[in-house]
Design a binder for these strands. Structure first.
Lengths: 108, 108
DNA sequence: TATATTAATCGTAATATTGCAATAAACAAA
DNA sequence: TTTGTTTATTGCAATATTACGATTAATATA
């Protein structure tokens, strides 16, 4: 009831789902788009660009950080958010591995 | 609230997020694993294999069908669920396009 | 030190998701 | 037609997510 039964799935299934879940919100995709385009990596700029309240953006950044897609570096009073290249590569590998296991034939 | 503000994001951002969201649950990954391995495509076999109640599996199948990853074919009293190859290819392309846009350099 | 700037955290309301029991619907077989 | 088999739908309880105002924490600057 509202609670995912993680224990009945494999480690890998849970991991893939966890990554996909974090990517499963347009605000987080928009944040990644913004950071990847190197427009800026300062949190405040994200708030201005995306159009959600600062606490909301902060919350989404936290989610992205949790799975290791981005990392934050404190620079004075502001925080610089960047792609965590090493982790993001691993994440992409995990997803690609799943996406590439296609059935050679189908039954219907 | 609890309501995603889809209108402030691009079509593409919403689309990527919608796909990722559906993949963001281990039961749905397990279902895809099962179908892809061609163990069986009958709904009832999924229920037995995965260990969630029949209505729960049925609900997850509905989600997967909604974004076009799978399709269901009625075969007598049972339903055969298979990967919708054409749609799944498009979905993978969309995801890969996003995953491959990496920043050439990083700021931190 | 006082004040501004920036981002995180807390608390809360609204909505969404997950899971299942009960039931319905659709079809096959006796 | 009746009965069994299989899947979908309904209704509901428990939990999670999204969003934001208010506040806090941390640092920079006057």
């Amino acid at each position: 009831m509202g609670l995912t039964k993680s224990e009945i799935f494999t480690e890998e299934q849970n991991q893939i789902a966890a990554i996909a879940k974090v990517l499963g919100h347009p605000a987080r995709i928009a944040i990644l788009d913004f950071i990847i385009k190197l427009k800026s990596c300062v949190c405040g700029d994200l708030v201005k660009d995306i159009g959600l309240a600062q606490p909301t953006i902060s919350q989404h950044l936290k989610e992205l950080k949790k799975v290791g897609i981005i990392k934050g570096t404190i620079e004075g009073t502001s925080v610089c958010y960047c792609i965590d290249d090493e982790n993001f590569s691993k994440i992409k590998e995990t997803l690609n591995k799943f996406l590439s296991k296609n059935p050679t034939e189908n039954c219907c």
